[in-house]
Amino acid sequence: MPDHPPRPPWPAMIAVPVVIFLCWALPRLAVQLGGIEGPWTPFLYQYFLGGLVFAIGLVVIRVSGACDFRRPGDRTWFTALVLGYVAYALMHGTVTWLAYAIPFKGVQG
């Protein structure tokens, strides 16, 4: 089988600085939105940065052809991946909300 021509480097040259910028910006955006002491700030931190890692993963598997929608099952698995992310966010969001919505019975100290 003949070797494929090397892939052009420019997508990576653009992607790497963008990812570095987002790694810097997203935590600060989370703090900006939720406040450093805010109950939702850690949630935003995790799902912003986790979302970034997750999105990179989705892009890589699609671009590389590892996840090919023409193959049976790949579209289903791809959907399952996205739904899993949403399910995790919903679970964490629900528990965070419950934490503050139900009053403490003792004396908060």
């Binding site: 450093i36 700030t41 850690p42 949630f43 964490h92 419950l98 934490a99 403490f104």
Partner: peptide, 15 residues
């Protein structure tokens, strides 16, 4: 849940 202090109920720690 009622007797668990609020700050200990969150699934995340402080940032």
């Amino acid at each position: 849940w009622g007797w668990l202090p609020v700050e200990l109920r969150s699934p995340f720690a402080h940032i």
